[in-house]
Design a protein around this nucleic acid. Structure first.
Lengths: 202, 202
DNA sequence: TTGACAACTATTCTTTTGTATAGTATCTAA
DNA sequence: TTAGATACTATACAAAAGAATAGTTGTCAA
């Protein structure tokens, strides 16, 4: 198999991801739109990928590209984590309480889990009993809501990483922000991932 | 899961086989050609299959059909309604903008739909951009949050039915409650159903 | 016996989509 | 240094495809 340029690799990845999410391949124009280029340029990339054997194209057919041995899923089984223990790998089977089938379009990214909210420190945006979807990532943007492991306990807070240390703040003013020096933070605090969705049953 | 007619079963089998062989789903016209029928007839079959939850269709896209993840008992296709018009039957196909596969455990009751929230009258519990799940029912308990059709426009409000009339109140104090005399209410207000879930993407 | 559903025909309209022509600019290996 | 690959722009066209309008026929249950 011939090697791909980084651009071609990116196009292939996009096609694979699109396929996983939608259940069918993208059009040439959708590839073009995703990369902000003209259809012709996208066509060039897809031709190159076909020439190098990475995908199959059926001339003249809409979405006529196929990746060998792909099984698309419309629904993804997302694990609900019970108690989260520090140290352990996050998605270890002992921690998975249940799984829920969610539409692929709601699941952004690779590693994702659900967490049942207990406290109301993030009220009114996130309430006790809510289910939050967390995309696993080791760092988040300033002010993002994240699932954070503090002293062996998982909580949902806004994260502010600063030179002076780390601050975990709830939206609810009744809760005092937690402040950590850089040293403490490294030892006691672990960002599990960014909260990307909230699901509430009324 | 609803049962299929033998013809619908045959169409579903063809879609599955085609998908397995080609790596992408068939077009409506290809289904039609395979059975020797008109595109419109094939479209009818595919619509029926979508309605019964056996596959997902993306309106307007070529080959925009995807097979549901083969555990249909766990997943229910919930319609997302666009503009809701008074008089029309609620789940009329013209009003259905799309459908989303949701876990059965989240879907309470038979007739359920999703609505995209536009105003912030129910802030902070429900925010613009949220998706709310509505269980269709003609009346709700006092103080329940409901999807209500007022003057041909669908809104989310708390409903207070009293001897003196009907009051629709938003949680957001910036919004003045709407009051209707019993006569006005009967004429202008229609309760679509109770809001049983809120889904928010962050 | 009415009405909903299923299963179609025939035709048409409008988008979507693949692909083409005709270029430019950059880089790289012979 | 020069041919070939890469990575694009801009425009255009014809075919493919979704979806709609407007029906017909048959079945089956209330």
């Amino acid at each position: 198999m011939k090697t791909l340029t980084s651009r071609q690799q990116a196009v292939l990845s996009f096609v694979e991801e699109y396929f996983q999410q939608q259940g069918y391949p993208p059009t040439v124009r959708e590839v073009a739109a995703h990369f902000g280029i003209q259809p012709r340029a996208a066509d060039d990339h897809l031709s190159a990928l076909k020439r190098k054997g990475y995908l199959h194209r059926e001339p003249g057919r809409s979405r006529g590209l196929a990746l060998t041995g792909r099984q698309p899923e419309l629904v993804v089984e997302v694990p609900i984590l019970g108690q989260i223990a520090a140290g352990q790998p996050l998605l270890a089977t002992e921690q998975v309480e249940d799984t829920l089938p969610l539409p692929r379009s709601w699941v952004q990214g690779e590693e994702v889990f659900l967490l049942r909210v207990t406290g109301d420190s993030m009220a009114p945006l996130i309430l006790p009993g809510d289910l939050v979807m967390v995309r696993v990532q080791p760092r988040v943007a300033r002010g993002d809501i994240a699932a954070v492991l503090v002293f062996d306990e998982a909580t949902i807070k806004r994260v502010y990483e600063e030179a002076g240390g780390l601050v975990l703040k709830g939206d609810n003013p009744d809760f005092t922000p937690l402040r950590f020096s850089p040293g403490e933070a490294a030892e006691l605090v672990q960002i599990l991932g960014k909260v990307v969705g909230v699901y509430r049953s009324l």
